[in-house]
Design a protein around this nucleic acid. Structure first.
Lengths: 235, 235
DNA sequence: TGACACTCTGTTGTATGCAAGTTAGGTTGT
DNA sequence: ACAACCTAACTTGCATACAACAGAGTGTCA
């Protein structure tokens, strides 16, 4: 039986600063363990210098989040969302972010809006420079700031859960490589900010949702191409 | 202690057909353990004839769902949502159900819509008879059917989670006691079904969201009254 | 040669033991 | 009477032991 990977980092075993659950989640989300890879409890226990018990608890949580699949008496495996699930999750994402944009337009009154304004400025600069990586990071910030501005913790919690299920960062990197998408995306962000500034919650919600729909279409297109060229086997 | 006449039947003690997690959740949601009550692992383990380990796993899940609070080294307690959380959850509920209504109006084409139609008819009959209990059950069915009709499993999952967090059934029973609410509620349901029949997804979403907002206001009003008269101590 | 049964290893599921922390209540000293 | 301290019981957190099951590989028999 071969080990799932080489020993990760021998010196990293010092002490667990961050909660075990987050470290495990990052391990799955980062793609260090590709979809379908097994996650044996004993191996992870040795890797993190704990016993199986806390590992088990964390894996159950990850299963609940939809990131791994536990086949009883067989093992735990990294789960690959189906295409249908991705479509569904994007629909949900549009709904939640649209809701957030509407709430933002109704409530927010100052500092939160400034964050969005500065973000759009920085994004424009990144687009001018053609810096796709920076732009991708700013997109992340934009959406997070928007959710935060809705001032609804339960919404934030569900949103975070949703994004984990999407393994979003794994996807968004692909969409920014689509030609022309950057400019459109930036314009959409600007429209959303404008609607919030105008306190037009209907327009804010509608524009936000359309934006997510466009980004969803882009990601799905990129995914289709990837499947066609079979990139997955290359890694 | 045990009867000598009856032979020992090991699996007679518990017929744990349903997963432990669901049974525990029901225990919390049913109000059998009131908010604030402790849930000692050892006690539950004896109650369900298992060891602490599976109980622990289930409690961790319930904490993740927001139903209980685990205070480290102290104990696990039934969690009482704050008023603010209830407001937030209703906002989310409106967003999700609105989204579902919109999707329903776009996609659904037959049997799912019939379910809604029959539900509205039955609800009208219940209102005529003044049967509040029956009406409350039909309201539940209506919302579940609507979510199901959206044909989006991820949406269903998040919705179920949300409703558990709301401990909704504990709340809805209070709202149906508000005078006049039944008639309004029924009319709103009829409007939603009409919008879906007309395939008007914008109207379906808008109407649905307004409906949730109205029901939210009713529940919050009932809650305020309850707090004022301090009913909680009477139970 | 093919199919069947079997063993053997690996993995999870559960129970239990022990350590560490918290809390409540009693005790003691002022 | 009151405050501080101390102790004892109860709770969780983690580690470990053991049992049950799945799956792959092998050996055997027709």
């Amino acid at each position: 039986m071969q080990q799932p990977t080489e020993a990760l980092r021998p010196d990293d075993v010092t002490v667990d600063e961050t909660p075990l659950l987050d470290r495990l989640r990052k391990l799955v989300l980062s793609g260090e363990f590709p979809p379908g890879a097994p996650l044996p409890e004993l191996f992870l226990a040795q890797e993190f210098n704990v016993s199986r018990t806390p590992i088990r608890e964390a894996l159950k949580q990850l299963e609940n989040e939809g990131l791994v699949e536990i086949r009883p008496r067989v093992g735990t495996f990294v789960r690959q969302p189906t295409r249908r699930e991705i479509v569904e999750l994007f629909e949900l994402k549009g709904g939640l972010e649209g809701l957030a944009a509407g709430l933002f337009a109704r409530r927010s009154s100052g500092p939160e809006l400034d964050v969005l304004r500065r973000n759009v400025e920085a994004s424009a600069a990144a687009v001018r420079r053609g810096d796709r990586t920076r732009y991708a990071a700013l997109v992340h910030e934009f959406h997070n700031a928007l959710i935060a501005g809705a001032d609804n913790r339960k919404l934030s919690e569900h949103y975070e859960r949703l994004m984990n299920q999407l393994a979003y960062h794994r996807l968004v990197l692909k969409s920014v490589d689509q030609p022309g998408r950057l400019g459109f995306s930036l314009k959409e962000h600007e429209s959303i900010v404008a609607a919030i500034e105008a306190r037009d919650h209907v327009s804010a919600e509608f524009t936000m949702r359309q934006h997510v729909e466009a980004s969803s279409a882009t990601v799905l297109r990129a995914l289709a191409i990837e499947v066609a060229t079979d990139v997955t086997t290359a890694s």
